[in-house]
Design a binder for these strands. Structure first.
Length: 358
DNA sequence: GAACCGTGGCA
DNA sequence: TTGCCAAGGTT
Protein backbone atom coordinates (compact mmCIF):
# COMPACT_ATOMS: atom_id res chain seq x y z
CA UNK A 1 0.00 0.00 0.00
CA UNK A 2 1.36 3.38 -0.97
CA UNK A 3 0.61 6.46 1.09
CA UNK A 4 -2.49 8.16 -0.25
CA UNK A 5 -4.10 5.01 -1.63
CA UNK A 6 -6.03 4.21 1.53
CA UNK A 7 -9.29 5.84 0.43
CA UNK A 8 -9.21 4.10 -2.93
CA UNK A 9 -8.50 0.71 -1.36
CA UNK A 10 -11.19 1.27 1.27
CA UNK A 11 -13.75 2.01 -1.43
CA UNK A 12 -12.79 -1.14 -3.34
CA UNK A 13 -13.17 -3.14 -0.15
CA UNK A 14 -16.64 -1.76 0.60
CA UNK A 15 -17.75 -2.39 -2.99
CA UNK A 16 -16.62 -5.99 -2.62
CA UNK A 17 -18.39 -6.31 0.73
CA UNK A 18 -21.69 -5.13 -0.76
CA UNK A 19 -21.59 -8.12 -3.10
CA UNK A 20 -19.91 -10.73 -0.93
CA UNK A 21 -20.81 -10.11 2.72
CA UNK A 22 -21.33 -13.38 4.53
CA UNK A 23 -24.82 -14.01 5.86
CA UNK A 24 -24.85 -14.43 9.63
CA UNK A 25 -27.59 -14.53 12.28
CA UNK A 26 -26.30 -11.36 13.98
CA UNK A 27 -26.07 -9.30 10.80
CA UNK A 28 -28.77 -7.35 9.00
CA UNK A 29 -29.45 -8.16 5.34
CA UNK A 30 -28.07 -6.17 2.38
CA UNK A 31 -31.33 -4.29 1.76
CA UNK A 32 -31.58 -3.17 5.37
CA UNK A 33 -27.89 -2.27 5.41
CA UNK A 34 -28.34 -0.14 2.31
CA UNK A 35 -31.23 1.60 4.08
CA UNK A 36 -28.96 2.45 6.99
CA UNK A 37 -30.47 -0.04 9.45
CA UNK A 38 -28.13 -0.94 12.31
CA UNK A 39 -28.14 -4.34 13.98
CA UNK A 40 -29.29 -4.74 17.61
CA UNK A 41 -26.38 -3.75 19.92
CA UNK A 42 -27.23 -6.74 22.13
CA UNK A 43 -26.82 -9.08 19.16
CA UNK A 44 -23.59 -7.41 18.07
CA UNK A 45 -22.10 -7.56 21.56
CA UNK A 46 -23.16 -11.18 22.15
CA UNK A 47 -21.78 -12.33 18.80
CA UNK A 48 -18.51 -10.47 19.26
CA UNK A 49 -17.91 -12.03 22.68
CA UNK A 50 -18.74 -15.49 21.34
CA UNK A 51 -16.44 -14.94 18.36
CA UNK A 52 -13.39 -14.12 20.50
CA UNK A 53 -10.83 -16.73 19.42
CA UNK A 54 -13.68 -18.84 18.10
CA UNK A 55 -14.78 -19.77 14.58
CA UNK A 56 -18.02 -18.55 13.00
CA UNK A 57 -19.11 -22.16 12.45
CA UNK A 58 -18.82 -22.92 16.15
CA UNK A 59 -20.69 -19.76 17.20
CA UNK A 60 -23.79 -19.90 14.97
CA UNK A 61 -25.89 -22.37 16.98
CA UNK A 62 -24.81 -20.96 20.33
CA UNK A 63 -25.87 -17.50 19.22
CA UNK A 64 -29.28 -18.77 18.10
CA UNK A 65 -29.86 -20.64 21.36
CA UNK A 66 -28.83 -17.66 23.51
CA UNK A 67 -31.01 -15.15 21.67
CA UNK A 68 -33.97 -17.55 21.60
CA UNK A 69 -33.74 -18.13 25.34
CA UNK A 70 -32.72 -14.58 26.30
CA UNK A 71 -34.08 -12.16 23.66
CA UNK A 72 -32.74 -9.02 25.36
CA UNK A 73 -29.84 -8.00 27.54
CA UNK A 74 -32.34 -7.57 30.40
CA UNK A 75 -33.46 -11.19 29.98
CA UNK A 76 -29.86 -12.36 30.06
CA UNK A 77 -29.13 -10.20 33.11
CA UNK A 78 -32.00 -11.93 34.94
CA UNK A 79 -30.77 -15.45 34.11
CA UNK A 80 -29.33 -17.89 36.65
CA UNK A 81 -25.55 -18.24 36.56
CA UNK A 82 -25.75 -22.02 36.17
CA UNK A 83 -28.14 -21.76 33.23
CA UNK A 84 -25.81 -19.42 31.35
CA UNK A 85 -22.75 -21.56 32.08
CA UNK A 86 -24.63 -24.67 30.91
CA UNK A 87 -25.71 -22.92 27.70
CA UNK A 88 -22.10 -21.84 27.08
CA UNK A 89 -20.72 -25.34 27.72
CA UNK A 90 -18.59 -26.57 24.83
CA UNK A 91 -17.74 -23.13 23.49
CA UNK A 92 -14.62 -22.75 25.63
CA UNK A 93 -12.88 -19.86 27.39
CA UNK A 94 -15.46 -19.91 30.16
CA UNK A 95 -14.34 -16.60 31.64
CA UNK A 96 -16.17 -15.13 28.67
CA UNK A 97 -19.47 -16.52 29.97
CA UNK A 98 -18.85 -15.26 33.49
CA UNK A 99 -17.97 -11.81 32.16
CA UNK A 100 -20.92 -11.94 29.77
CA UNK A 101 -23.29 -12.15 32.73
CA UNK A 102 -21.43 -9.46 34.66
CA UNK A 103 -21.62 -7.20 31.63
CA UNK A 104 -25.32 -7.89 31.00
CA UNK A 105 -26.12 -7.09 34.63
CA UNK A 106 -24.08 -3.89 34.52
CA UNK A 107 -25.91 -2.76 31.37
CA UNK A 108 -29.30 -3.71 32.81
CA UNK A 109 -28.53 -1.89 36.05
CA UNK A 110 -27.60 1.23 34.07
CA UNK A 111 -30.94 1.29 32.27
CA UNK A 112 -30.67 -1.51 29.73
CA UNK A 113 -28.88 0.41 26.99
CA UNK A 114 -25.30 -0.34 25.91
CA UNK A 115 -22.87 2.58 25.93
CA UNK A 116 -22.76 3.99 22.39
CA UNK A 117 -19.03 4.72 22.34
CA UNK A 118 -15.95 2.52 22.29
CA UNK A 119 -14.69 4.30 25.40
CA UNK A 120 -17.88 3.55 27.30
CA UNK A 121 -18.02 -0.05 26.13
CA UNK A 122 -14.37 -0.63 27.03
CA UNK A 123 -15.18 -0.15 30.72
CA UNK A 124 -17.52 -3.17 30.79
CA UNK A 125 -16.44 -6.69 31.86
CA UNK A 126 -15.16 -8.88 29.05
CA UNK A 127 -14.96 -6.01 26.59
CA UNK A 128 -11.40 -5.20 25.53
CA UNK A 129 -10.02 -2.91 22.84
CA UNK A 130 -11.18 -5.09 19.96
CA UNK A 131 -14.73 -5.77 21.13
CA UNK A 132 -15.30 -2.16 22.20
CA UNK A 133 -14.24 -0.89 18.79
CA UNK A 134 -16.22 -3.56 16.92
CA UNK A 135 -19.50 -2.93 18.78
CA UNK A 136 -19.07 0.85 18.52
CA UNK A 137 -18.45 0.65 14.78
CA UNK A 138 -21.01 -2.01 13.84
CA UNK A 139 -23.87 -1.09 16.17
CA UNK A 140 -23.30 2.66 16.63
CA UNK A 141 -21.50 3.75 13.47
CA UNK A 142 -18.50 5.16 15.33
CA UNK A 143 -15.36 5.25 13.17
CA UNK A 144 -13.44 3.20 15.73
CA UNK A 145 -10.32 1.35 14.63
CA UNK A 146 -11.21 -2.35 14.75
CA UNK A 147 -8.17 -4.61 14.94
CA UNK A 148 -8.55 -8.36 15.30
CA UNK A 149 -6.47 -11.22 13.96
CA UNK A 150 -7.97 -10.85 10.49
CA UNK A 151 -7.23 -7.13 10.32
CA UNK A 152 -3.68 -7.70 11.55
CA UNK A 153 -3.10 -10.20 8.78
CA UNK A 154 -4.69 -8.10 6.02
CA UNK A 155 -2.83 -4.96 7.09
CA UNK A 156 0.50 -6.73 7.55
CA UNK A 157 0.18 -7.95 3.97
CA UNK A 158 -1.10 -4.71 2.41
CA UNK A 159 1.91 -2.83 3.83
CA UNK A 160 4.30 -5.82 3.79
CA UNK A 161 5.14 -5.35 7.47
CA UNK A 162 7.78 -7.94 8.34
CA UNK A 163 8.14 -7.17 12.05
CA UNK A 164 7.11 -10.33 13.94
CA UNK A 165 4.01 -10.37 16.14
CA UNK A 166 3.25 -9.13 18.69
CA UNK A 167 5.87 -6.39 18.33
CA UNK A 168 4.23 -5.26 15.07
CA UNK A 169 0.93 -4.53 16.75
CA UNK A 170 1.28 -0.73 17.22
CA UNK A 171 2.29 -0.28 13.59
CA UNK A 172 -0.59 -2.47 12.44
CA UNK A 173 -3.07 -0.42 14.49
CA UNK A 174 -1.69 2.76 12.94
CA UNK A 175 -2.09 1.41 9.40
CA UNK A 176 -5.56 0.05 10.17
CA UNK A 177 -6.51 3.52 11.36
CA UNK A 178 -5.46 5.08 8.06
CA UNK A 179 -7.71 2.61 6.26
CA UNK A 180 -10.78 3.17 8.46
CA UNK A 181 -13.35 5.42 6.73
CA UNK A 182 -15.58 8.00 8.40
CA UNK A 183 -18.49 6.65 6.37
CA UNK A 184 -19.73 3.08 7.04
CA UNK A 185 -17.01 2.19 9.56
CA UNK A 186 -19.00 -0.85 10.72
CA UNK A 187 -19.24 -2.28 7.22
CA UNK A 188 -15.55 -1.54 6.73
CA UNK A 189 -14.65 -3.50 9.85
CA UNK A 190 -16.79 -6.44 8.82
CA UNK A 191 -15.42 -6.27 5.29
CA UNK A 192 -11.87 -6.54 6.63
CA UNK A 193 -12.85 -9.56 8.70
CA UNK A 194 -14.74 -11.24 5.85
CA UNK A 195 -11.77 -10.63 3.57
CA UNK A 196 -9.42 -12.14 6.12
CA UNK A 197 -11.68 -15.13 6.69
CA UNK A 198 -12.42 -15.98 3.06
CA UNK A 199 -9.63 -14.61 0.83
CA UNK A 200 -6.71 -13.18 2.81
CA UNK A 201 -6.48 -16.43 4.78
CA UNK A 202 -3.52 -17.49 6.95
CA UNK A 203 -2.51 -20.25 4.53
CA UNK A 204 -2.86 -20.18 0.76
CA UNK A 205 -4.40 -16.71 0.42
CA UNK A 206 -6.54 -16.35 -2.73
CA UNK A 207 -4.81 -13.19 -3.91
CA UNK A 208 -6.22 -13.54 -7.43
CA UNK A 209 -9.72 -12.99 -6.02
CA UNK A 210 -8.77 -10.16 -3.68
CA UNK A 211 -10.54 -6.83 -4.26
CA UNK A 212 -7.49 -4.92 -2.99
CA UNK A 213 -4.72 -7.01 -4.53
CA UNK A 214 -3.62 -4.05 -6.64
CA UNK A 215 -2.71 -2.23 -3.42
CA UNK A 216 -0.97 -5.16 -1.69
CA UNK A 217 2.78 -4.83 -1.14
CA UNK A 218 3.14 -8.41 0.09
CA UNK A 219 1.52 -9.79 -3.05
CA UNK A 220 3.86 -7.66 -5.17
CA UNK A 221 6.81 -9.15 -3.30
CA UNK A 222 5.39 -12.68 -3.35
CA UNK A 223 5.43 -12.99 0.44
CA UNK A 224 1.74 -12.69 1.30
CA UNK A 225 1.47 -16.22 2.69
CA UNK A 226 4.44 -15.59 5.01
CA UNK A 227 2.89 -12.59 6.78
CA UNK A 228 2.34 -11.71 9.52
CA UNK A 229 5.51 -13.31 10.87
CA UNK A 230 5.26 -14.96 14.28
CA UNK A 231 7.81 -16.31 16.71
CA UNK A 232 7.65 -20.09 17.22
CA UNK A 233 5.55 -21.29 20.12
CA UNK A 234 6.93 -23.38 23.00
CA UNK A 235 6.03 -27.04 23.17
CA UNK A 236 3.02 -28.02 25.29
CA UNK A 237 3.76 -30.13 28.37
CA UNK A 238 1.60 -33.14 29.28
CA UNK A 239 -0.26 -33.24 32.58
CA UNK A 240 -1.90 -36.23 34.25
CA UNK A 241 -5.01 -36.51 36.42
CA UNK A 242 -7.73 -38.76 37.84
CA UNK A 243 -11.49 -38.41 37.46
CA UNK A 244 -14.15 -40.23 39.46
CA UNK A 245 -17.65 -40.94 38.12
CA UNK A 246 -20.02 -42.14 40.86
CA UNK A 247 -23.61 -43.29 40.31
CA UNK A 248 -26.19 -43.86 43.02
CA UNK A 249 -28.85 -46.59 42.86
CA UNK A 250 -31.30 -44.28 41.09
CA UNK A 251 -28.77 -43.33 38.39
CA UNK A 252 -27.88 -40.01 39.99
CA UNK A 253 -24.42 -38.62 39.31
CA UNK A 254 -21.82 -37.07 41.62
CA UNK A 255 -20.86 -33.67 40.20
CA UNK A 256 -19.08 -30.63 41.53
CA UNK A 257 -19.06 -26.96 40.58
CA UNK A 258 -15.52 -25.84 39.83
CA UNK A 259 -14.11 -22.68 41.45
CA UNK A 260 -14.91 -19.38 39.71
CA UNK A 261 -11.34 -18.62 38.81
CA UNK A 262 -8.92 -20.64 36.74
CA UNK A 263 -9.31 -23.43 34.23
CA UNK A 264 -12.97 -24.32 33.47
CA UNK A 265 -13.93 -21.83 36.18
CA UNK A 266 -17.58 -21.96 37.19
CA UNK A 267 -18.31 -25.10 35.17
CA UNK A 268 -19.61 -28.48 36.29
CA UNK A 269 -17.17 -31.39 36.47
CA UNK A 270 -16.43 -34.73 38.06
CA UNK A 271 -14.40 -34.86 41.26
CA UNK A 272 -10.78 -35.84 40.85
CA UNK A 273 -7.14 -35.01 41.37
CA UNK A 274 -5.25 -31.88 40.45
CA UNK A 275 -3.67 -31.99 37.01
CA UNK A 276 0.10 -32.10 37.32
CA UNK A 277 3.11 -33.21 35.33
CA UNK A 278 3.71 -36.06 37.77
CA UNK A 279 1.50 -39.08 38.54
CA UNK A 280 -1.37 -38.09 40.85
CA UNK A 281 -2.18 -39.95 44.08
CA UNK A 282 -5.60 -41.65 44.37
CA UNK A 283 -8.22 -39.30 45.84
CA UNK A 284 -11.69 -40.89 45.58
CA UNK A 285 -14.48 -38.51 46.64
CA UNK A 286 -16.12 -41.29 48.66
CA UNK A 287 -15.46 -44.87 49.74
CA UNK A 288 -16.59 -47.34 47.09
CA UNK A 289 -15.44 -50.19 44.90
CA UNK A 290 -13.84 -48.09 42.18
CA UNK A 291 -13.15 -49.65 38.79
CA UNK A 292 -10.49 -48.06 36.60
CA UNK A 293 -11.52 -47.93 32.95
CA UNK A 294 -9.20 -49.46 30.39
CA UNK A 295 -9.04 -46.31 28.26
CA UNK A 296 -8.07 -42.83 29.35
CA UNK A 297 -9.40 -39.45 28.29
CA UNK A 298 -7.05 -37.29 26.23
CA UNK A 299 -7.69 -33.61 25.81
CA UNK A 300 -5.62 -30.61 24.78
CA UNK A 301 -6.04 -27.21 26.38
CA UNK A 302 -4.49 -23.94 25.29
CA UNK A 303 -1.18 -24.56 26.99
CA UNK A 304 -0.97 -28.26 27.94
CA UNK A 305 -2.03 -31.78 26.99
CA UNK A 306 -4.09 -33.70 29.55
CA UNK A 307 -4.40 -37.46 30.12
CA UNK A 308 -7.13 -38.46 32.57
CA UNK A 309 -7.52 -41.88 34.17
CA UNK A 310 -11.23 -42.52 34.79
CA UNK A 311 -12.72 -44.48 37.68
CA UNK A 312 -16.38 -45.48 38.05
CA UNK A 313 -18.33 -46.86 41.00
CA UNK A 314 -21.79 -47.49 42.35
CA UNK A 315 -22.19 -45.67 45.66
CA UNK A 316 -24.60 -44.03 48.05
CA UNK A 317 -24.36 -40.75 49.85
CA UNK A 318 -25.19 -37.07 49.84
CA UNK A 319 -24.73 -34.68 46.96
CA UNK A 320 -25.75 -36.81 44.00
CA UNK A 321 -27.46 -34.94 41.18
CA UNK A 322 -30.64 -36.72 40.02
CA UNK A 323 -30.20 -38.02 36.50
CA UNK A 324 -33.12 -35.98 35.16
CA UNK A 325 -31.49 -32.78 36.47
CA UNK A 326 -28.24 -33.47 34.66
CA UNK A 327 -27.53 -32.89 30.98
CA UNK A 328 -24.11 -34.00 29.67
CA UNK A 329 -24.37 -31.05 27.28
CA UNK A 330 -23.87 -28.77 30.29
CA UNK A 331 -20.35 -30.14 30.79
CA UNK A 332 -17.17 -28.62 29.39
CA UNK A 333 -15.80 -30.84 26.65
CA UNK A 334 -13.10 -32.57 28.66
CA UNK A 335 -15.70 -33.59 31.27
CA UNK A 336 -18.12 -34.69 28.56
CA UNK A 337 -15.36 -36.99 27.27
CA UNK A 338 -15.09 -38.48 30.76
CA UNK A 339 -18.86 -38.95 30.82
CA UNK A 340 -18.90 -40.55 27.36
CA UNK A 341 -16.22 -43.02 28.41
CA UNK A 342 -18.13 -43.95 31.57
CA UNK A 343 -21.29 -44.40 29.48
CA UNK A 344 -19.52 -46.59 26.93
CA UNK A 345 -18.35 -48.80 29.75
CA UNK A 346 -21.89 -49.01 31.17
CA UNK A 347 -23.20 -49.93 27.71
CA UNK A 348 -20.54 -52.59 27.35
CA UNK A 349 -21.56 -54.02 30.70
CA UNK A 350 -25.18 -54.26 29.65
CA UNK A 351 -24.43 -55.75 26.26
CA UNK A 352 -20.84 -56.91 25.83
CA UNK A 353 -19.48 -56.27 22.33
CA UNK A 354 -18.50 -59.24 20.22
CA UNK A 355 -14.89 -60.25 20.78
CA UNK A 356 -12.78 -59.25 17.83
CA UNK A 357 -9.64 -61.26 18.34
CA UNK A 358 -6.31 -60.55 20.08
C1' DG B 1 5.23 -8.14 27.96
C1' DA B 2 3.95 -12.73 29.11
C1' DA B 3 1.18 -16.30 31.08
C1' DC B 4 -3.23 -18.07 31.35
C1' DC B 5 -7.54 -19.47 29.40
C1' DG B 6 -11.07 -24.18 25.34
C1' DT B 7 -12.42 -26.18 21.45
C1' DG B 8 -12.93 -28.26 16.86
C1' DG B 9 -11.41 -28.22 12.10
C1' DC B 10 -7.88 -28.78 9.00
C1' DA B 11 -3.38 -29.59 6.44
C1' DT C 1 -0.97 -37.98 14.51
C1' DT C 2 0.43 -33.47 15.45
C1' DG C 3 0.66 -28.63 15.20
C1' DC C 4 -1.59 -24.56 13.78
C1' DC C 5 -5.24 -21.66 13.89
C1' DA C 6 -10.00 -18.63 14.89
C1' DA C 7 -13.89 -11.80 15.35
C1' DG C 8 -9.21 -11.57 22.61
C1' DG C 9 -9.51 -10.40 27.57
C1' DT C 10 -7.66 -10.52 32.14
C1' DT C 11 -4.10 -10.56 35.40
Amino acid sequence: MRDGSEAEAGAALLFWYDGHARVMPWRVGPAERAAGVRPDPYHVWLSEVMLQQTTVAAVRDYFRRFTARWPSVADLAAAEDGDVMAEWAGLGYYARARNLLKCARAVAAAGGQFPATAEGLRALPGIGPYTAAAVAAIAFDEPAVVVDGNVERVVARLWAIETPMPAAKPELVDKAGRLTPQLRPGDHAQAMMDLGATICTPRNPACALCPVNAFCAAKAQGIAAELPRKSPKPEKPTRFGLAYVAFDAAGGVLLERRPEKGLLGGMLGFPGSDWAETAPAPCPPLAADWTQLSHEVRHTFTHFHLRLRVFVAQAEGEGFTPRQDFSPAALPTVMRKVWDLAQARAQAGAAPPHPRGI
